[in-house]
């Protein structure tokens, strides 16, 4: 099988009274160990609904689609390792935004390793045809998210979802985001 990859990561501001973080966290943490394509699709749909409903909180982000086999495998490993090595996670609590009055941020990441020869991969490729001047626009992220209903999990070989932080008081700080390891997350343009 040749592989294709789609990945999307968003950095969102954690508002003290928002359920954004807790909903996304629960979505990932509570998804069963043994799942089905249908359940996975519902999971993705729920994630999309939560994210799109909170698009005002989008701060930074990135998304990728590659249908080159080696690139897809390499990038999928990279996204998985971002989770496994806890690369982006803090080593200690930063305090809840409410308590400290400073902004806190979360990231939500999802990546899908697909059969490059499937209709699903072709549909996602089409979804990701975006003019260069629109790559980092919020409307582009929303468009792509909203179009992910084309994801067919019968053609998805593996997927990974993760949320940083795992505890609300471990949110990322503005200073954290200036670290080199987050450079791949570009500022999302409102217009």
């Amino acid at each position: 099988m040749n592989h294709a990859i789609f990945a999307l990561e968003l950095c969102l501001e954690l508002a003290p009274d928002s359920e954004l973080w807790s909903e996304l966290r629960a979505l990932v943490a509570e998804h069963p160990a043994i799942s089905s394509p249908g359940k996975k699709w519902q999971m993705l749909r729920s994630a999309v609904q939560i994210l799109v409903a909170n698009q005002d909180a989008f701060v930074r982000g990135c998304w990728d689609f590659f249908d080159d086999n080696e690139r897809a495998l390499k990038d999928y490993d990279m996204w998985c390792n971002g989770m496994i090595t806890r690369e982006g996670a803090r080593k200690e609590a930063s305090g809840a935004p409410r308590r400290h009055g400073e902004p806190r941020f979360m990231t939500f990441t999802m990546s899908f390793l697909m059969d490059a020869g499937s209709q699903c991969a072709r549909d996602v490729a089409k979804l990701c045809e975006v003019p260069e001047n629109l790559l980092w626009k919020k409307q582009t992220f929303v468009k792509i998210l909203s179009g992910l209903g084309v994801m067919n999990f019968a053609a998805v070989k593996s997927d990974v979802f993760y949320v940083i932080p795992g505890d609300e008081s471990w949110g990322l700080t503005a200073e954290d985001l200036t670290d080199r390891k987050f450079q791949y997350l570009r500022m999302i343009e409102d217009r």
Partner: peptide, 30 residues
């Protein structure tokens, strides 16, 4: 949703699960 049948090898199986203060995440394989 396509391929929603179960017990036909279509299952996804989780092989990594993280759940701590820093990160919550999981990976599944078809």
């Amino acid at each position: 949703p396509p391929g929603s049948g179960s017990g036909s090898g279509q299952e996804f199986e989780r092989d990594v699960e993280l759940n701590d203060e820093g990160i919550v995440g999981a990976r599944w394989w078809h």
